[in-house]
Design a binder for these strands. Structure first.
Lengths: 346, 346
DNA sequence: CTGAAAGCGCTAACAC
DNA sequence: GTGTTAGCGCTTTCAG
């Protein structure tokens, strides 16, 4: 049976006080007598009274919950972001409702609807690969619920803040580094162009080639639609089968890069001597493989913390009747150079 | 400003119907005229009406939310579990409220309180290392909210189901396998004994030694209190500095095992010839390192799915006024043999 | 210093 | 078929 939790009414009855007084006493309102406060607190503690936050939410029209929609959870970078989000939310006494879109537009729509129905006070979202319409997020803004996008963002949704890392800068640094190590034919294991981060990294790759005066050969861009280890492995094998394999590879993520590494090793080629390799994410696995993988570090936890902080700010703004100004935060990336890309002993 | 979402009352006013009728029409109650249903649905869709699930929750005394408390999120195994949980919850139209205890007893207590205050319909929990009291979970049971423990469980909380993997069996298989490969001095990188899984793996290690007629030397058990890569590295270095290092290591997790691998390689020893190595989790990184790491696979997603399924069952039982019978589910583990532990070419 | 009353948005029992 | 009423548990005017 559904056992009943103790309620304010229960307390007030037992104390012969009105619910209002009990409520105020529990919150230490100044104009309640010490005596009453003592009695109320004592009984509340004894009976282990806990306010029903659903009722509070209904009354105060705020749920103290923030919604999070993320493409995947089983992913080092994303789980780091979630961690950052949860830490900030926790400190501010907000709960986190988590949804995984699984990179599916349809799932994302359903998740968004469920979160909106749950009356979350704000939404944090990293957009699925396949998403190219944004009405389901506009609905939040229309309802006065702030939305902050992180990592996979879009500029097609006005009035909402975005937190991104400097993907393009990281990509440029990687390619220039490969060039400095003597690479002249650098391939790119890219992602789906629709995704913001994938696009930026690819643009960075192309920017760098142009700056360096290297040819931009579309045949050197291999598109990993799902950005997986297996795709990295597969496309790299393909490269290796060709008459003239590249002498450097810049991979869109570490996962893809590790797949590439496997293929290169299997083919009996040396890293970095034959093919130098740089990934993206600075996953801690990078130091567990041989050779250690060079990679661009992107601060996941910091991104989560920042996204959550901005969202909370916006929630408070709105509660004080001021429309928040959307902001764009660019977090720095840093190229971590390891063995996989250092050809020359200097 | 807090813009208002459209409510049932709004609809009823505009349609000159009672809120009750509108409510019933939206839920397609049989005794509402087709005509009315049409009008109601049309307007609801037009105005994009979405029921306020906080209000529904208050009224129906169920929140359609389940709480999850997990020691860490940034962890392949745990995030896989979360994924499994979320899939099942999603299918059943439940939302997931996630908390990370960070292996802290105090944080766990606060999270539990917050979830109970949010009136989650059920709780899934994997217990923090440092937790040795369970009143904060008993509170759920007292309130008629079912609790299902997974992975890190305790038998000190009566009336609640547990999902575990066969840690002991996996440990035994690992040690016997090392023995079959010629290891006669097998060390164990263990965890804190308080943690259920750590304890079981350690017991499995000892069971196997006994079965094999090998001495059980307490000095061969290295206790990694935080179960980290660094601890694996550190303790293995320590072993290697001694006069007679072990010829096999069974590590409590893959993370620890990878730390051990690094130490062994650094010391110039060969794996598996000098020291054979087996980890636990079957992390996919195991196939990305050289040599590939043997490991015990434990089905994370399946565990999450099972835990969530059982919890939902129990929620429904309770709603139908029947006290669920706590069950214990043991998921099979499987030793995946790779290069790090195969000494002899057969 | 405390109480009465209204209401957040919805549902369910009971009328008609 | 549809409306009325009451109430989920809490907060917050407004009175006194």
């Amino acid at each position: 049976m559904i056992k009943k939790q103790i309620t304010l009414a229960d307390l007030s009855r037992m104390l012969s006080l009105s619910p209002a007084t009990v409520s105020r006493a529990l919150k230490n309102y100044p104009d309640i007598s010490q005596e009453t406060k003592k009695r109320v607190h004592a009984l509340a503690k004894e009976l282990n009274y806990r306010p029903n936050s659903i009722a509070v939410g209904l009354r105060k029209r705020e749920s103290k919950m923030i919604g999070v929609i993320i493409p995947q959870i089983v992913n080092h970078y994303f789980s780091a972001i979630i961690k950052g989000i949860m830490e900030v939310a926790y400190e501010a006494d907000y709960r986190v409702m988590l949804c995984q879109s699984d990179e599916s537009y349809e799932k994302e729509i359903k998740d968004a609807a469920a979160l909106l129905d749950s009356r979350v006070d704000g939404l944090l979202v990293s957009i699925a690969h396949s998403t190219d319409r944004f009405e389901h997020f506009q609905a939040f803004l229309d309802a006065g619920v702030p939305v902050v996008m992180f990592d996979k963002v879009t500029d097609q949704l006005a009035g909402c803040s975005r937190i991104i890392v400097d993907d393009r800068g990281g990509a440029i640094a990687s390619v220039k580094h490969l060039h400095s190590q003597g690479c002249r034919d650098i391939a790119h294991l890219a992602g789906p162009q629709l995704a913001y981060t994938a696009y930026e990294r690819e643009m960075g790759y192309l920017d760098a080639l142009r700056d360096l005066g290297l040819p931009q050969d579309p045949g050197r861009v291999y598109r990993c639609m799902n950005v997986t280890y297996d795709e990295g492995y597969h496309f790299t094998r393909e490269m290796l089968k060709s008459a003239k394999p590249p002498d450097g590879i810049f991979a869109i993520t570490d996962e893809v890069a590790h797949g590439a590494m496997k293929a290169i090793k299997e083919a009996g080629k040396r890293i970095p001597e034959d093919i130098a390799l740089v990934g993206f994410s600075n996953w801690f696995v990078d130091e567990m493989v041989e050779p250690h993988l060079s990679s661009v570090s992107q601060p996941g936890e910091e991104m989560g913390r920042m996204a959550a902080s901005i969202l909370l700010q916006e929630i408070h703004s709105i509660q004080n009747d001021i429309t928040p100004t959307p902001q764009v935060q660019l977090l720095k990336t840093e190229l971590i150079i390891r063995q996989s890309s250092v050809k020359q002993v200097l």
